[in-house]
């Protein structure tokens, strides 16, 4: 069989399909009424909830900063963590906007790009968490203040502060190196490929593979 014979067979098949097929309108109606269960709508709901969570964190941190305003380690920590939470909030809002704009009647390349941006969200949040890793002591200082009312930083000996600063600097270098490598084109690397699969899931890997297939001439 060659492609022309295949085409003739396909066209005969297409003509017959209309006679052979029937549409279950009752089930169709049910699906329409359950439209909220479609994949995209579920994602919009998930990102909205995530955004709401970030909003609560941002509002809570601002409340703490304003009510305890002074140049202490817990307040500075709250300000630092607020920057990350605000970035997370902006990311969630951006996702909801993008998701509600996805148009499946666009050419395949455009739709794939939009869907990759949506499915890469897990990786973006992971990068944001990684970026906050060098500031890990901010979580500790704020936690101690909120739970036990102790300003841990003021009680620390100078040598301990230097050790934590060195650990943060090492984290900073490692995180910068890793984030620099966390690109889809580096998925052939075992660690990066594994992170993409584990963090963003197989759906993103599938979309990226299709995008690569599209580019291949």
């Amino acid at each position: 069989m060659n492609l022309d014979q295949m085409q003739s067979m396909w066209q005969a098949h297409s003509e017959k399909l209309d006679e052979c097929m029937s549409l279950n309108k009752t089930l169709l109606q049910k699906i329409q009424s359950e439209g909220h269960k479609s994949e995209l709508n579920k994602l919009i709901l998930a990102r909205s909830l995530e955004g709401f969570l970030f909003l609560i964190i941002v509002a809570g941190l601002w409340h703490y900063v304003v009510s305890s305003w002074s140049l202490t380690a817990p307040v500075v920590s709250a300000l630092v963590l607020n920057v990350f939470a605000t970035l997370g909030l902006a990311g969630s809002i951006g996702q909801v906007v993008l998701l509600s704009k996805i148009d499946f009647s666009q050419p395949v390349r455009e739709t794939l790009s939009d869907l990759i941006a949506v499915r890469a969200h897990g990786m973006t949040i992971f990068k944001l968490l990684l970026l906050s890793a060098p500031f890990y002591m901010a979580y500790v200082f704020l936690g101690y203040e909120l739970v036990a009312g102790i300003d841990l930083f003021s009680l620390m000996p100078a040598e301990t502060k230097v050790i934590f600063a060195i650990i943060s600097a090492v984290f900073g270098v490692l995180v910068t190196l890793l984030i620099n490598q966390l690109k889809p084109e580096n998925r052939s690397n075992k660690l990066i490929g594994w992170l993409y699969r584990e963090v963003s899931g197989s759906r993103l890997t599938h979309l990226l593979d299709q995008f690569d297939n599209m580019e291949k001439a």
Binding site: M1, H13, K16, L17, M21, N24, V108, Q210, N213
Partner: peptide, 30 residues
């Protein structure tokens, strides 16, 4: 099923069609 397909009417072609779809299935999505 949302779409019901009456196989009887297409039965004489079904073998060829199955081979055709099997070939398509082996290709990548693009």
């Amino acid at each position: 099923r949302l779409l019901t397909y009456d196989m009887v009417q297409e039965s004489e072609n079904e073998q060829n069609l199955s081979a055709l779809y099997a070939f398509i299935n082996e290709l990548n999505d693009i």
